[in-house]
Design a binder for these strands. Structure first.
Length: 257
DNA sequence: AAGATAGGCAACCGCCACAGT
DNA sequence: GACTGTGGCGGTTGCCTATCT
């Protein structure tokens, strides 16, 4: 079967998101919810792949996302969960409200993995020094030296037992239950948009513009369009929701809706 | 001060699972 | 059952910035 590309590659923007693009995405999802990621960029006025929009929303723009400043507890949790779950970052993220799988993954690779390797090496060296003299005689124990590396390799990334399908499905369930990382933005993200202060913190002044006060009205039926979104949403967006020339007015600052 | 290098992280890519037709 | 569309995940890439020489 030929896989359908996630989007038409031609003419789509890639790379770092601009504040304007963020703004458009947040505005659209806030107002209408994410009823279909692939079509969303078109209606939101974004020249982006739907996947890209989803990723941006899930990893950066979503409300209640914590960024940086991992607490000791969080670090311990990540290490512990990684030991038992392996590289199932989404499952790990489900246990850490406000953290995204991508961020945890990055944090693991940039911080925790190195630290763990260091610790294991250090602790093993300590063990070796204290025990080595009595053990060094046997060839068996010579191999103890090498398990340092193997221990590390075992813990990362292949150490966990292959997860059962139940685990996989439960992780999805956990994800929803945890509330912080539900993949269903229609049920989670949009209902939590009331607390947009969190988002406002994310991007500095941009997010503190009056836009939020006036535009984060969440209609009760924002989860999904009640009628065909093609009909419902397309026309207003060009005129009502989004400005074709962007939404920043040089004289007035951010425009209001 | 300028270039080289390393590290961090946002974003992309490809695959998979699942639901709907 | 086959096919299609969509969402989600993990691995990887590449840009940006900080640090080093």
């Amino acid at each position: 079967m030929v896989r359908t590309p996630c989007c038409d590659k031609s003419g789509l923007k890639k790379g770092t998101w601009t504040p304007e693009e963020d703004h458009k995405l947040v505005a659209y999802i806030t107002r209408y919810g994410c009823w279909n990621w692939r079509r969303l960029p078109k209606y939101a006025g974004l020249m982006r792949c739907g996947k890209s929009c989803r990723l941006r929303w899930m990893n950066y723009l979503r409300p209640n996302i914590k960024r940086g400043n991992y607490s000791k507890e969080e670090e311990d949790t990540i290490i512990k969960l990684h030991a038992s779950l392996g590289n199932r970052w989404s499952a790990i993220a489900a246990q850490l409200p406000g953290r995204t799988d991508n961020e945890i993954k990055n944090y693991w690779h940039t911080n925790l993995k190195k630290r763990l390797i260091k610790q294991k090496t250090a602790s093993h060296e300590a063990n070796f020094i204290s025990n080595g003299l009595s053990q060094r005689e046997t060839s068996q124990n010579r191999s103890v030296v090498h398990p340092i590396a193997s221990q590390i390799l075992e813990s990362y990334p292949f150490s966990p037992q292959p997860s059962s399908s139940t685990e996989t499905s439960s992780s999805t369930t956990d994800s929803s239950a945890a509330g912080g990382n539900s993949s269903n933005c229609a049920s989670y993200d949009c209902s939590s948009l009331a607390s947009m202060e969190t988002v406002a913190e994310l991007s500095g002044n941009f997010w503190t513009e009056p836009f939020f006060a006036d535009n984060y009205y969440i209609p009760n039926d924002s989860m999904a369009p009640m009628v065909d979104p093609e009909i419902l949403f397309h026309p207003p967006l060009s005129g009502e929701l989004l400005y074709s020339d962007g939404f920043y007015n040089g004289h007035e600052g951010l425009r209001y809706w």
